[in-house]
């Protein structure tokens, strides 16, 4: 039998977070396209950014790939193609720790830069600060859990607890007992992540969804017809142009 706390933490919180994440993004896109930007601070400072930003961004892209593989691909699939749990874990842990360290190092440089470079610091909003705490907190918890777990010599196989629980959320058949059985480190990391996801659509992190892959295929020069109206107001109903 699941305790109320377990249901709260491993069913209610995830669903609320997913709902806020999805609806929040739709809302933000509809109402605040103008605010949807990377808000780059490169103009203020470039020396630290040139080092920290690629380190962080490429690192976290690898981390995301690792999470997709670890959470969405069932253990039975990898075993079916002949990859043993030990082999899988060795590869996942080493690549994951490497990517995680890159991400954390990049984030550390960026946070240091944000705090010490005057113009960058004064361009930092309260929203940014909350975002940094959530993001770096989640990364530290995840990386810490992985490293400490491996140091014990008997790392927890999250593909028997966290992953099936995560997938169960999307089958609309949540199984909180799986997650409740996971070690504390994983639990904290997961909770931090859900808070981060709920905050995501209201932060500058929305720029993740602007990764401009369309650039690879579109023609170089974009032509667009002037809107029907002058200035940038839509014509009033009944005053639309003919032809």
């Amino acid at each position: 039998m699941n305790s109320t706390l377990d249901i709260m933490l491993w069913v209610v919180v995830p669903y609320v977070s997913i709902a806020v994440f999805v609806v929040g993004h739709v809302w933000r896109y509809r109402y605040d396209k103008f605010g949807w930007t990377t808000r780059s601070s490169q103009l203020y400072e470039n020396r630290l950014l040139r080092l920290g930003s690629p380190l962080f961004h490429f690192g976290i892209l690898l981390v995301v790939l690792g999470h997709v593989a670890g959470l969405l691909i069932p253990e039975s699939w990898t075993e079916a193609v002949g990859v043993s749990e030990t082999a899988y874990h060795a590869v996942a842990a080493s690549l994951g720790i490497l990517a995680g360290l890159c991400t954390l190092a990049g984030a550390a440089i960026l946070v240091y830069r944000r705090r010490t470079v005057g113009p960058v610091f004064s361009a930092t909003t309260r929203n940014d600060k909350v975002m940094y705490v959530l993001l770096v907190g989640t990364i530290v918890l995840g990386l810490g859990t992985t490293i400490l777990g491996n140091l014990t010599g008997d790392p927890h196989n999250y593909r028997e607890t966290v992953s099936p629980w995560f997938r169960s959320l999307f089958y609309a058949d949540p199984q909180p007992q799986l997650m409740a059985a996971a070690p504390l480190g994983f639990q904290l990391h997961v909770i931090a992540a859900w808070i981060l996801f709920a905050f995501w659509p209201f932060s500058r992190l929305v720029h993740v969804f602007s990764l401009p892959l369309g650039y690879l295929t579109r023609p170089y020069i974009v032509y667009r017809s002037r809107d029907d109206q002058l200035g940038n107001r839509r014509p009033r109903r009944g005053w639309e142009r003919v032809g």
Binding site: S210, G214, I221, V222, Y223, R224, S225
Partner: peptide
């Protein structure tokens, strides 16, 4: 990259 800059036809 975003295709935000355009030339008015």
């Amino acid at each position: 990259p975003s295709g935000a800059i355009y030339k008015r036809s």
